[in-house]
Structures are given as C-alpha cells and as structure tokens.
Design a protein around this nucleic acid. Structure first.
Lengths: 170, 170
DNA sequence: TATTGTTATACTCTATAACTATA
DNA sequence: TATAGTTATAGAGTATAACAATA
C-alpha cells in the first residue's frame, strides 16, 4: 500500500525557465490519511478503548472510581473473599500496583480484609455494605453508559464486538 | 445481575449446637467470575488492546518504535509534509507530548523538518530515505503480526471487528 | 523451595499552564 | 485575537527487584 493521499496544496511556484517543471521540494497536506493504521487491530482497539474510557472517567467521577478501581471493586462485589493474587490474575494487574489501590478502597470503607479460611498468607477481600451499595449504583451507571456509547451499534453488532474482542485477549 | 459465582470452598466449620447452621463469616473463592465486566465494551476493548500492544512492543523493538512512534511515523510516511498539529488531531495526541517524540525521530535521522509552504508558524514533517525504508519494513512486520494475532479470527471476522471498532471512535 | 503480600523505586505515559512567533 | 509549536512540570499508570511471613 503506497501513499494513498495525492491531494496536496501546492503553491503555484512559477519557476524561472524550466521546460520540465520540477516538483516543489515542500508540500502541504490537506487531509491526513490514516487508512493504513486503520487496517491494524491494535490501533483500532486502542483508539476505541481510549474513547470509551474517556466517557467512563467522566461518568464514574461521581463514584470516585477510575477504570481499574471499578474493575477491582466489581470483581470483589461478585466474588467476596477473592484474594489479591486472584485479582491480579483475573484483571492482568501487577501485585505491587494493587497494594495502594486496595488500601485506598479499605480506607474509604468500601471493602474490608478478612483472613483467608485456609491460607494464612492470603487475605480475603469483601465488600462492605457501603461498598456493595456503591457498586450496585456504579454498575448500573456503567451499563447505562454502555448503551449510550454503543448507540451506533445494533444489539447484535454489540454482542458480536464483545465476542470478537474476547477472542483476542482470552 | 447478582453474584453468579456460588461455588466457594467452605471449611466444614462444625459449629457447636446450632439447629440452623449459620453461614461461615469468611469464605474463599475457587474460580474468579468476571462475567459482569465481560459485558462492558470498555473493559473488553482495553484488555484486547493491551494484549495486542504487548506483542507489538516485542516485535517493534527491533525497529526502536513504540506504538505511538510507529503511528506517528506511519502518518508521516503516508502524508509527507504533515504538521504536528495535524498529527495531534489525527492520532488524538497532545502537542506537548509530540515535541520530544518528533525531536527523537529527527535525531535518529528518520524524519526532517521543512518549512511549511504557506504557513510560517507551521513545520512540515517529511520522512528521510532512511525513515521511509525503516517504515516499509516496520509496516510489513506490523501487518504480519496482525495475521498472527488474529489467527483465531476468520478474515471476515477480522474485517467486522475493525469496522465495529471504528464505529466506536470515529 | 514456592507463594502471598508488601515496600521502595524507576520509568513511561498523559495532562495542564504558560510562553513565542506568526496568521 | 487566534493558532502552531514549544517549555516546564505535575500526575497517573506501569514496571522490576527485593523482602517477610506462610505453605
């Protein structure tokens, strides 16, 4: 695939005495062509993810939850007693980056940490009533946001998109 | 959607004399349930993007190009004379973050900066022969990587995925 | 010996405000 | 007055190495 954007703005640049007029050294671009990048899954997935997350950030500010906070709280909500290690494996996070996040959630009273029933090294993470109530609202808001975000997709297209994305990372 | 993961490891915890045995306070999670998160476009798009980019980083290390470097060079390659401002708009980057990147590409001899033909404030970015040659190889490698990455997708599914992602961010 | 959770730390990425030169 | 490019800087996100406690 060669340069697919031949439309340039060119100054008249009347050169003096040239039977075969040489091309101008400099040229300007009228419309930027990104058609090559648009053939790449990585580029499109990244752009789409960032666009969605942008709206997510605004909507979730009310709950004080950034994307990773949200996903961590959601997993704890649906898996009370889950350990940090399990969270890392499920969400592809690194343990050191989870420590401060967990502490913050505990300080806010959204979760509490209880000893693991069988493994003395591990700690089970449980939602507090406040945390559970917050997540019920937050997940509803996230689901509402999904519908707004995918307004340009049919329900079937949205389902297809989810399935195809999961084929990539699962 | 309530808790869809009832499978817990529970210690027998034989309580003393209780006709209605109370549930254990602590419980462990056997398998982490992420089914709610998997209904969200943002979560899936982000996970997929990060998975793809992980492979991209490894493959492109040979060319010394990170994802943003690659996309910037690709746009310059296909749009010689493009300005920083146009790059920012096309790739959703912020001007201050592009400055160091452009300088680095110029220092490496991959691009050169020429005065804009009509706007004295702007600078046109052009690939050097070395930059153009590098990008020809890098884009071929990226395209090869795409095929490997989407091995679990049919050609039609891959096309569908690209189109649906573009409906999200374009 | 391997694993869970933690600390310290470094590096990258992204975002904001303010300045200059030109349109 | 508005725009292109730049500088300085702050903040968030992500990465590795090493340690204590427990399996």
């Amino acid at each position: 695939m060669a340069n697919a954007n031949p439309s340039r703005t060119q100054r008249p640049s009347r050169r003096a005495s040239s039977s075969a007029p040489s091309l101008p050294v400099v040229s300007a671009v009228e419309q930027v062509d990104t058609s090559y990048l648009q053939t790449l899954l990585g580029y499109n997935a990244r752009r789409a993810a960032l666009t969605i997350i942008e709206g997510f950030l605004e909507r979730m500010a009310e709950f004080g939850l950034r994307p990773v906070d949200f996903s961590v709280m959601s997993v704890i909500q649906h898996n009370p007693g889950v350990t940090s290690r399990q969270l890392c494996a499920a969400l592809n996070l690194l343990p050191p980056n989870l420590v401060g996040l967990i502490q913050s959630l505990e300080t806010r009273g959204l979760i509490h940490r209880l000893p693991h029933p069988t493994d003395g090294r591990a700690v089970g993470l449980h939602p507090t009533p406040e945390g559970a109530a917050l997540m019920q609202k937050a997940e509803q808001a996230a689901t509402d946001l999904e519908e707004a975000r995918s307004a340009r997709l049919t329900a079937a297209q949205r389902k297809t998109l989810l399935e195809l994305l999961q084929k990539i990372y699962l």
